[in-house]
Each structure stands twice: as structure tokens, then as C-alpha cells.
Design a protein around this nucleic acid. Sequence first.
DNA 1: GTTAGACTTGTTATACCATAACAAAATCAG
DNA 2: CTGATTTTGTTATGGTATAACAAGTCTAAC
Lengths: 161, 161
Amino acid sequence: MSEENAHNHNDCIDTALATAETLCLAQGQRLTKVRRRALELIWESHRPLGAYQLLAKLAEEGFNSAPPTVYRALDFLLNAGLIHKVESMNAYLGCAHADKEHKGYFLICDECHNVMEFDYQDIHASLVAKAAQHGFELRSETIELTGLCADCRGMAAEVRA
Amino acid sequence: MSEENAHNHNDCIDTALATAETLCLAQGQRLTKVRRRALELIWESHRPLGAYQLLAKLAEEGFNSAPPTVYRALDFLLNAGLIHKVESMNAYLGCAHADKEHKGYFLICDECHNVMEFDYQDIHASLVAKAAQHGFELRSETIELTGLCADCRGMAAEVRA
DNA sequence: GTTAGACTTGTTATACCATAACAAAATCAG
DNA sequence: CTGATTTTGTTATGGTATAACAAGTCTAAC
């Protein structure tokens, strides 16, 4: 996924925010100003955003600039399933399927740093089965794959040519 | 895996150290005192060790107590394939298969914090295929599963009984 | 055995990531 | 309105990781 690819990213943001409103309303959760704005800022790209990067953006807009502000917003959004944490980057990413129960499986491009979330029921089933073979009861999964995305592979090929 | 389980853990350590010696010798790498001792300390259990925990242990033994000391040792051991980093814990774990090229797939017990490394070629193949479907060229994989290990499930069952 | 170069370690400083603890303010239900 | 609950403000601190440069150590070639 390049920075200037086909999709209209405003749609991503709008959809994510609408889903967030709906979900919070349904669960009696309050999507306050800072939480809402944090979610929008995280959704500004498909690259994970660090907590302190987010904090700086919020501070620019007049929000409180102490770390708890941003970590509280992140906790809220994580619990609501509206964002994911990318463990290998200590950074946070908007979730495009917040309305569906799911695990976050990620493809992380080393080059452009865009992250694509993918779903793969087969892999989940295999992992549960494999864990069970070891007598292990699975609770959570961190699946983060890195490499080169289609766009960056293309560009690498052009450079070589 | 409980703390008092069947295996003689000295064997784990001895094997790991012997492998490390062999590997470093073969590759013209130097397993210096601090690197060797760091590896031993990481191997003291099957629980991942944090960088600063390791630093404290090294400092007790007279090694330099500044962070770069431990991070350099960790970098060396990671590059040599002798340890893995558990991203979701920011901690480091001895690798039992340093002599074989492999990805680190982990089962992490929430209760006893022991970590078991497992190998699963099928899952690796599925992930490569899935990535390829998205035009993605895979380079590295972070697979970290948490839950309850066999021993801790057993104990939980006993408590319930 | 001396010396140049590469590698390793020492040292200081700093940046980044995350949470504890308690006070103040806003919101909501009765 | 008021008391309870939730959210936010504020200060402080703990945990993770690296930059930059100096000093020491090892090794290979002379």
C-alpha cells in the first residue's frame, strides 16, 4: 500500500468513526472528545502511530499533554476493539473490523511501514489445534509478519530495472 | 511447564552453551565472557528475561552496569540466533534450536510465564501463501500465543475440584 | 614483538514507552 | 440538586532502548 494508492482514505476514517459511534452507543460507552480525536489521528494513515506521536498531535490541538491522557485514550480504544496494538513496533493501528470479534493478524511493510490487517480462520484453527497438542489453552494471539508489500516490491523491481 | 517439572534443566543450559561455542567458532564470532554469561543467565529458566533484569544479574557479578553492555550482548546473541526476543513481553529467551534456521513461534503461559517454543512448518507455509495472496513478500514472523500451559490448567482444575 | 586495524567494551547522556497515585472536574441517575 | 461514577488533570516515576565518543583488547601482518 503506497501513500498515494487508489483508495480514498477519507472513507476509511469516516467508516471507522461511524462504527465507533455506533459501537460506543450500543455499549453505553462514552466516545469523548479526546478519545474520538485520538481515533481520528490514528486513522490518518495505515501506519501504526506511537503513543507519544499521538500525544504530540493531541497537544498541538490543545489537549492535555501528559502521557496519561494518551494512554487512557488508547486503553479505551483498545478495550472497545477500535484499535490494535502492534507489539513489535510499540505502536497503534486503527481496526477496520471493530464490529466483528477477531484477532489482529498483521502484514507490516519494512519499506513504507504501512500495515495491512488480514483475517485467516484456517491459521487460527491450526494454532488452536497446535496449542492443544501441547496441552495449551489459547487465549490471545500476536501475529505480526514483516516484509515487503506489493507496492514496495514493485518499486524495488523498477529500481533494479 | 512447571518450575519443578521432569526435565533436568542443567542439560538445557549445557546443550545451549555447547551449541553456542560451536556456532561461534564455526562463524568466526567471539563468545566473550559477558556474552557467554548473558546467555547462561537467560537460560537459567524457560521464562523470558528482561534486559534490565539481565543487566542487574551481570552487574552483581562485576560486569559493567550500564545499559549498552546488556544490549550489545543481546544484539550479538540475537544475531547469532542463540536467543529470541519475545516482542509482547520485551524480554529475551534462550533458543533451543540455534543450529537450525527457524522462526520463533511461542506459547506463553499467562500463569507461570514459562514460554515454550514450537515449530510448525504448516503454519509457516500458510502464512507465506497468505502473504503472497496480498502481494506481500514475507521476511520475518512474530508469532506469540498466550494462554494456560498444561501444568497450570491442571492446577486450575485441582483448585476447582 | 611492534604496530595498524578491527572489534569489543566503558562511559555519559538521552530518548522513548508506560503506569502509579491522587486531585479536580464533568457527567449521570435518582 | 446531590451523591455516585466516570473522566480528566497533574506530578512523579519506572521500564525499555539507543546515540555518540573514548578507551581497551585482540589479531594479523610486518
